[in-house]
């Protein structure tokens, strides 16, 4: 099988628009600016990859969209328009009718995301009862259907099993079945395959691709693995220290990365079939987000730093859907 051609998306059909999102954590040590001004636009049927290293704010971004940030964290600014409604203005009751129903989520650790004391089937049926109002045989029938759809053989037996009786890959299939129970318009997948072995990862990615075709859901795929992004995403946002530093369609990002961080990231990865003597290195480490450096947050690790970098770079639009936060591309230096 070859890589699936990237589907065309309809730009008139915007499903999600995040503007100026800021989520801060008010800790004893100070305010952690985990997400600091994020703009995202997602269309129906589009898959957006959010990549970045640990602590870049990619998971907090997704939790903020779902309003799942817990104390001491708080969304302090921005809007999250989902199908024309600002999620941040909804009350908890209204939010619950959207979360798990029209927007659902797959987490990184499938074995901990499931409740260990309930049977797998009951957990899926609970979702169906709450959001779809299905009851009894109708609900269990739909549950069997979902388990079969995600490729778990013998759904009747699986439904009666507890999470510990399933392997990691099987648990992730159950999570996906649960996430898809209500045919969500938006699916947020936070490192869905990171905890899995490569051969199982390939199975899950295949499954996600097939389901995407089938129910045409939009996906936000959060990952640190550039390979997963290249295979799954239509467009990509690269995050660094709480900000998006580059935004591009997947092809441009890999063939012509603009931001020095993206370039460094791609060059520092060992790539199968391209053995180099020395890997490129991004010196230093990610800055603290309690007192992030003023100016460009990547400047202290950047090989192309110059005077302008002491000031905060704005997000520059180089072309339609191609944005970069770097002074190198400003017309007036």
């Amino acid at each position: 099988m070859t890589t699936a051609p990237h589907r065309s998306t309809d730009p008139s059909q915007e499903i999600l628009r995040v503007t100026g999102l800021k989520t801060h954590f008010f800790t004893d040590e100070g305010v952690v600016q985990a997400v600091d001004g994020i703009d995202i636009v997602l269309h129906r049927g589009e898959t957006l990859g959010i990549v970045g290293e640990s602590g870049s704010g990619k998971s907090v971004t997704s939790l903020s969209i779902l309003r799942l940030v817990s104390r001491p964290g708080r969304v302090v600014a921005g809007t999250v328009f989902f199908d024309g409604v600002d999620l941040l203005t909804l009350n908890d009751e209204e939010m619950r009718t959207i979360r798990g129903n029209r927007i659902s989520m797959i987490f990184q650790q499938p074995t901990t995301a499931l409740n260990p004391v309930f049977r797998v089937g009951d957990q899926i049926i609970e979702t169906l009862e709450i959001h779809q109002g299905l009851k009894g045989e109708e609900a269990s029938g739909r549950c069997r259907e979902l388990l079969a759809m995600v490729g778990l053989p013998d759904p009747n037996r699986r439904m009666k099993q507890y999470p510990h009786e399933l392997s990691g890959g099987q648990c992730q299939r159950v999570m996906i079945a649960m996430a898809l129970a209500c045919n969500p318009e938006l699916l947020i997948a936070d490192e869905p395959t990171t905890a899995l072995d490569v051969t199982i990862q390939a199975q899950i990615l295949d499954l996600m691709r097939a389901l995407r075709e089938k129910i045409n859901t939009s996906i936000i795929l959060i990952t640190h693995d550039m390979g997963v992004v290249a295979e799954m995403a239509d467009s990509v946002a690269v995050m660094y220290a709480g900000q998006i530093v580059e935004y591009a369609d997947v092809r441009s990002l890999f063939t012509d990365p603009k931001h020095p961080y993206t370039q460094g990231l791609l060059n520092s990865m060992p790539m199968l079939g391209h053995v180099r003597d020395e890997l490129a290195v991004i010196p230093g480490t990610v800055p603290s987000l309690i007192n992030p450096p003023s100016g460009c947050r990547f400047a202290s690790r950047c090989s192309q730093r110059f005077e302008a970098c002491d000031r905060d770079p704005a997000m520059l639009e180089l072309a339609e859907g191609r944005r970069v936060r770097c002074w190198l591309y400003a017309e007036k230096r």
């Binding site: 070859t2 390979g227 295979e231 092809r251 990865m269």
Partner: peptide
């Protein structure tokens, strides 16, 4: 099975 960080690559995949 290893995801290839090259969106233009076409190759055989054995799942």
């Amino acid at each position: 099975a290893i995801p290839n960080p090259d969106p233009t690559a076409r190759r055989e995949r054995i799942v």
